[in-house]
């Protein structure tokens, strides 16, 4: 009982103590803020817009129809008609005043934005300007639409662009399934691999044996080919564009990149630690200008133009400017195959 006086504190003191401690309890901390809003909140974020590409239904190319040649295109017009005599899509472009072309802005050498000038330039872009010059009389009357590899077909089908000049391989699925049309072949490329400097791998087989992670852009023939090596051990990784693959390569998220030799040459130029070892191309990648399948006359027009540029040295001049430093002297321009009905 000797402690009693201590507990017999004045009533008000006890009350105040109780009051303050209760108030302190009432103040209690909040639950930790979660790392993402609960679904009830109206989302005000701006997700990167995506353009859903329609996927072709059952393929007409499995198996490829007998006698089908993806290089075969429509006969060229006998000569380039005068601007007043243009019809169909060509007349529409003329009336609009500019050509809309789907291109790449990050495939160095073929179609890439030059950060120093802000202009998109390259072997593909030269061809776009030639076409604009032929139709409109001015090489600059072009609206370049930057598209990803996966958007090439759908943008033609939806008529978002007039043409696609973006290292696009002519193949059966694109001709028949989407369907889109191609001009005559304007460049002959082939699929190769890019690896880290010092790597001994020179093919997808070598990379498969090492169970390597290999990057290819979505919606490309390179990726389709890469998928064939999955059974052998390759781990495929995709990105939006080849430059997106280089970004993953630089961040050590992939071990190698596969793609057309022209594209890989452009990537290797940007990174001294990325090399394209001497190797045989595993595929043939004939590049054609892509069109909406209804624009047959437009295709014929461009085929005539291609014949002219291949013959008068404009094709070679463009090759020498962009590709010769990386890929060596200009080969003979690819020979067109005509006769498609």
């Amino acid at each position: 009982m000797s402690r009693m006086p201590r507990t017999r504190l004045p009533l008000w003191a006890a009350g105040t103590t109780l009051l303050l401690s209760l108030a302190a309890c009432g103040a209690g901390g909040y639950a930790q803020t979660p790392l993402s809003p609960t679904p009830t909140a109206a989302a005000t974020t701006s997700a990167a817009p995506t353009t859903a590409a329609p996927t072709p239904a059952a393929s007409k190319c499995n198996p490829v129809p007998a006698g089908f040649n993806p290089l075969q295109t429509y006969d060229p017009l006998p000569s380039l008609p005068a601007s007043g005599a243009l019809t169909g899509r060509l007349a529409e472009i003329r009336a609009r005043g500019y050509l809309i072309a789907g291109v790449s802005a990050d495939t160095l050498l073929m179609g890439a934005r030059n950060p120093l000038t802000g202009q998109i330039e390259g072997f593909d872009i030269d061809l776009v300007h030639e076409i604009a010059k032929a139709i409109l009389g001015d090489a600059a009357k072009v609206q370049l639409v930057v598209i990803t590899a996966g958007q090439r077909q759908s943008f033609l089908v939806n008529r978002t662009v007039d043409i696609v000049v973006r290292n696009m391989t002519m193949n059966c699925a694109r001709w028949l399934d989407w369907p889109i049309a191609f001009s005559a072949e304007y460049y002959h490329s082939g699929q190769k691999v890019l690896v880290r400097k010092g790597s001994t791998a020179t093919s997808l087989d070598d990379l498969a044996a090492a169970k390597a992670k290999v990057c290819a852009p979505t919606g490309t023939t390179s990726l389709a080919k890469l998928q064939e090596f999955v059974a052998k051990g390759v781990v495929p990784v995709t990105a939006d564009t080849h430059t997106g693959c280089l970004l993953l390569f630089q961040q050590a998220k992939v071990d190698a990149i596969t793609g057309d030799d022209t594209v890989l040459a452009g990537l290797a130029t940007q990174d001294p630690y990325a090399v394209v070892p001497a190797q045989t191309a595993i595929t043939a990648e004939p590049y054609g200008v892509g069109f909406n399948s209804e624009d047959k006359v437009f295709v014929q027009y461009v085929n005539r133009l291609l014949e002219t540029t291949k013959a008068d040295g404009r094709w070679k001049a463009s090759y020498d400017r962009w590709l010769a430093p990386s890929l060596g002297d200009a080969p003979t321009p690819p020979t067109a195959v005509y006769g498609r009905q």
């Binding site: 990050d106 950060p115 120093l116 430059t243 997106g244 970004l247 990174d271």
Partner: peptide, 15 residues
């Protein structure tokens, strides 16, 4: 990357 005139600069930016 952009200062070196390499297109991968824009890819880093959009990424």
């Amino acid at each position: 990357e952009n200062r070196q005139g390499l297109p991968i600069g824009v890819t880093y930016m959009t990424s």
